[in-house]
Design a protein around this nucleic acid. Structure first.
Length: 941
RNA sequence: GGGCCCGUAGCUCAGCUGGUUAGAGCGCACCCCUGAUAAGGGUGAGGUCGGCCGUUCGAUUCGGCCCGGGCCCA
């Protein structure tokens, strides 16, 4: 052999590295896209196409990204990019939720560190600091989202705190006000009597607190149940000061109760022998013990349902001339027998459950306690006493009336103010509500809108419907500073809010110019104009709940921006947003526009650890997307997103990421192999479909099939299915079959050979398809691969569309033939595997098996293709018949038998096939290779 | 405690309206190749379909209970 044969072999060559090194390479691609102005180009290119609008649910502008926000944004990005490549104009405008308590809280904490007092700072200055704080985190999060490869209008996002947004949100509120869908009512909220303000849940700390507990007798006045007449209901409470506010007693309809008559009592007992009491059976022993009742007789056992319609007298009846009202017994599911007596005293002003129950049954909601913690005139006998000092006076009054059965103390977890550390109380306060029912029928509209909306997965519909069906009126007011004000004037004598469109418009215009601060800085008379006098009105100082704000983004973003549109095609958030954004957006939009702001709602689950448990700092199982960026890269994270079923909770952990890495390498190597074998490919080399060998036509058939899957999976938002299909295609069809078979042709056939040219034509198509299909997910890798093949300053895979594949490629009959061929091939590889184990062969090219086919259809199949080529053997002999008994067979492949034989002849030094003709060649080349080598020598000579 | 939901091989997922020995890829084990080489090919072992009890001729698929987990309320 005179020359280096290896140099005549067309081995793959590419600059696309096998090692991805994503953490280093991705930032370079991001820079390139910024230089290129890729986003603007994508928009310009899609101008005029049908729009696809995924409206971004605004994350809260506070803190770094976590796995949940990363999952959410990546999923949105995959969908948007896919729609863009499907031929839509998928503009994506990211947004941020900026107002609200957490930011106020952070700013206030910074104040405290510096020893400043928030209340001493003018509200407008405080709001400015909150604004700056939000702006800072918007910058941080924006950079982090972009690092994940999320494409969007990052230069022009929306936020809820721009002056335009504040004005827009106020205009939405004004729609509710002017249409009569806004009323002021009472609500029981956690209240600090020290700061004289309502507190939100996040401002509450729970500490142990020692409370005085009391057992109180409520004499029955009226009952249907004869066993109950002349008895008293016994309640237990940890807040004696709420007794003046009592208006009802709750019982459990499924709880068993007992009527007892007190026998002997111990020393100091407040119980009187002979008196009759009603207590839950399960709580009897404990209660008797506490009351020092030594003996008692059970007079009757009754079900909770027997208590229906029973009415008691108030235990303080007559005190200070008050408490002369009936105290009804009401059924409630929250009554338990874990503690107490199985009866819960209900003070509608002083507890959430109490309040809701009171509202449902139309109870009075008295203002028994003022903001500073002192009893009002509504608490006769206690006026001016502070509730924290009320236990003894209340107990004394109860004892006087023989209404106290026992007292004690209890150490329990109790809410305290995070600021003053003082214990909190529940107190009825004025709040603003949007009614769910009534003349506007918001609930009915919302339920109808849910029916008209597509939910992915479908179970989301039930969840949202269930919440809308049972929710109380929407309380939209908060007693805070950082938000859009409920800019409403209430008439001092009528108590009615002023509903004047001109006033509202003046307020809105002021907000547009100088932001919502105007509500605090301007003279109210400016808003009221000439027709009203500010002295006649009370200016509301509450702000809007942030859920109303984010619920209005459809109006201030989709409707207002000319590059978007209303309603949205899709809202996509985590499943917690059934209670949150899906919910508030639905109510806001139904209240103002009569329908949902979205046509489709997609929900995803939560990110959990490898065991399926939630990630938390205390468990130490938190995985940060920002860390993964540094160790794995965004494409790995993105691949993780599409490889998981987002309709359920999504696990992440070391093993899972390793698996994703394996799959990533498979995809990357597929692209690399394509690139390597496409070196120097040009259009002139292309072979028309009709001239292609069956194997190529089969690959094109598979491509066409997957091309349709790409479209249907996008329609269904089913990325796992698509991802698995593409991965399996690369692994089973390409790597293990098509690529393996075509190596011989690609490496050794003449450059002019039809077979090699057809193969390269198909590789080119494969490259086009795979880079496009992977581009929405592997945004960096697909771009990197694309640029290797299509270098150019202005080039980007993200400016492409998914290829339109000709339907004529579809050939189900051909696919069926290949299915059978691959079955037969499996019998051959199975037979060769035994030979390998027995060390009779190594490479499959060392074999030239005898293939016995009993079926004539199978023999006909083998006439259309070269089975040796498909099985990568040096030869094959096809014989009619069942084959000898010792032949290799597979149970699941009927009527196929293989007798392995070693290939006869010598090994071609170029293509490594073992053929008889090579033995006769002085250069040890097969006929094909000899011709190719000659061709190359002539060409180079 | 209540509402909604989930639980198929080590991992990620398929399994239509109940019906033959429950599938795929990855991983794993073994073997081969050394011209995709921190690659590639082949063969194989892995599942009492969370558990228990029902309905049924028959249940991974329907019902109940329990266990484990998640979201939202309380």
């Amino acid at each position: 052999m005179s020359r280096d044969v290896r140099s005549t072999v067309f081995l793959p060559t590419t600059s696309f590295p096998m090692k991805a090194d994503l953490p280093a390479r991705e930032p370079l691609l991001l820079e390139r896209w910024n230089r290129l102005g890729l986003w603007r180009r994508m928009r310009a290119q899609a101008a005029g196409r049908p729009k696809f609008i995924l409206h971004d649910g605004p994350p809260y502008a506070n803190g770094h990204l976590h796995m949940g926000t990363a999952l959410n944004k990546i999923l949105k990005d995959v969908i948007n990019r896919s729609r863009q490549m499907l031929g839509f104009d998928a503009n994506y405008v990211p947004g941020w939720d900026c107002h609200g308590l957490p930011i106020e809280w952070q700013v206030e904490q910074e104040y405290r560190k510096k020893g400043r007092d928030k209340d001493a700072v003018p509200i407008v200055d405080f709001r400015a600091e909150c604004r700056a704080y939000a702006q800072y985190w918007i910058g941080v999060q924006s950079a982090e989202f972009q690092r994940l490869g999320v494409a969007g209008d990052w230069e022009n996002p929306y936020t809820t705190m721009t002056f335009a947004s504040e004005a827009g949100i106020y205009r939405e509120l004004a729609k509710f006000l002017l249409s009569g869908q806004l009323y002021r009512g009472k609500k029981s909220v956690l209240w600090s009597v020290v700061e004289k303000t309502a507190l939100a849940d996040a401002e509450v700390e729970y500490h142990d607190h020692t409370s005085t507990t009391i057992w109180v007798k409520f004499p029955i006045e009226k009952t249907k149940e004869p066993d109950l007449s002349g008895t008293s209901i016994v309640i237990w409470t940890t807040t004696p000061w709420t007794i003046p506010g009592n208006r009802a007693i709750a019982y459990g309809p499924t709880i068993a109760y007992r009527v007892i008559e007190v026998g002997e009592v111990g020393e100091g007992s407040l119980a009187r022998p002979g008196e009759r009491l009603v207590i839950a059976s399960e709580r009897l022993a404990e209660t008797a013990d506490q009351a020092r009742i030594l003996t008692f007789a059970t007079l009757a056992e009754i079900d909770g349902t027997a208590l229906e319609g029973t009415v008691c007298r108030h235990p303080l009846e007559g005190l200070g001339g008050g408490y002369r009202f009936p105290v009804p017994l009401l059924p409630a599911s929250f009554v338990t027998t874990d503690q107490g007596t199985g009866f819960v005293h209900i003070a509608p002003s002083h507890g959430e459950e109490d309040f809701e129950l009171g509202r449902r049954y139309g109870l009075e909601i008295p203002d028994t306690v003022a903001g500073d913690g002192h009893y009002t005139e509504a608490a006769p006998g206690f006026v001016g006493i502070h509730v924290f000092k009320a236990a003894e006076p209340v107990i004394a009054a109860l004892r006087e009336r023989n209404a106290l059965l026992a007292r004690g103390t209890l150490v329990h977890s109790y809410p305290h103010s995070w600021r003053s550390k003082a214990p909190l109380i529940f107190r009825a306060t004025d709040q603003w509500f949007i009614p769910m029912d009534g003349p506007h029928g918001l609930r009915a509209k919302a339920l109808a809108a849910i029916e008209a909306t597509r939910f992915v997965p479908a179970k989301g519909k039930n969840r949202l419907r269930g919440m809308i069906e049972t929710r109380p009126d929407w309380c939209i007011s908060r007693q805070r500073a950082w938000g859009v004000p409920i800019a409403v004037f209430v008439h001092k004598t009528t108590g009615e809010p002023l509903r004047d469109p001109e006033v509202c418009e003046r307020i809105a215009q002021a907000f547009e110019v100088e932001g919502a601060d105007a509500w605090w800085t301007r003279d109210p008379q400016e808003f009221l104009g000439d027709r009203y006098r500010k002295e006649d009105f009370e200016k509301v100082d509450d702000i809007l709940d942030v859920w109303f704000e984010s619920g209005s983004t459809h109006a201030i973003v989709l409707e207002k921006r000319p590059d978007l549109g209303w309603p949205a095609d899709l809202y996509l958030e985590g499943s917690d947003q059934h209670r949150g954004w899906f919910h508030s957006s639905l109510l806001e939009s139904c209240g103002t526009r009569g329908r949902a702001p979205y046509n489709c709602v997609l929900t995803h689950g939560f990110v959990v650890d490898a065991k399926g448990e939630k990630m938390s700092k205390s468990k130490g199982n938190v995985i940060s997307p920002l860390d993964l960026m540094k160790t794995h890269g965004a494409d790995i994270l993105r691949l993780w997103v599409v490889s998981a079923d987002y309709s359920e909770d999504i696990r992440i952990g070391k093993e899972i990421l390793e698996g994703i890495g394996e799959n990533y390498r498979r995809l990357r190597n597929t692209l690399r192999y394509l690139l390597g074998n496409l070196a120097g490919f040009s259009a002139s080399e292309r072979v028309p479909f009709e001239a292609m060998p069956p194997l190529e036509r089969w690959v094109l058939h598979r491509l066409e099939e997957i091309g349709r899957l790409v479209r249907s999976c996008n329609e269904d938002y089913d990325y796992v299915r698509l991802y698995n299909a593409i991965l399996n295609f690369c692994t089973i069809d390409l790597s293990a079959f098509y690529f393996d078979i075509r190596k011989d042709s690609l490496y050794c056939d003449s450059r002019n050979s039809l077979r090699r040219r057809a193969a390269r034509t198909v590789l080119d198509i494969l490259f086009d398809c795979l880079t496009a299909w992977l581009a929405p997910v592997l945004v960096f890798t697909a771009e990197e691969a694309w640029l290797v093949r299509h270098p150019g300053e202005e080039e980007s895979v993200h400016l492409r569309l998914f290829p339109e594949l000709p339907e004529r490629w579809r050939d189900d009959a051909l696919a069926a033939r290949f299915e059978r061929l691959r079955e037969i091939r499996r019998v051959i590889t199975g037979a060769l595997e035994i030979e390998r184990k027995e060390k009779r062969i190594g490479a499959s090219l060392e074999a030239a098996p005898v293939l016995y086919l009993a079926r004539s259809e199978d023999r006909a199949l083998l006439e259309q293709v070269d089975m040796a080529e498909l099985a990568i053997t040096s030869g094959i002999t096809v014989v009619e018949g069942p084959g000898p008994a010792h032949a290799f067979r597979l149970e699941e492949v009927a009527e196929v038998a293989v007798v392995p034989e070693r290939a006869e002849g010598a090994k071609c030094v170029r293509c490594w096939r073992i053929l008889p003709e090579v033995a006769a060649s002085p250069e040890r080349l097969c006929a094909r290779c000899a011709a190719v080598v000659a061709e190359l020598e002539n060409g180079s000579a």
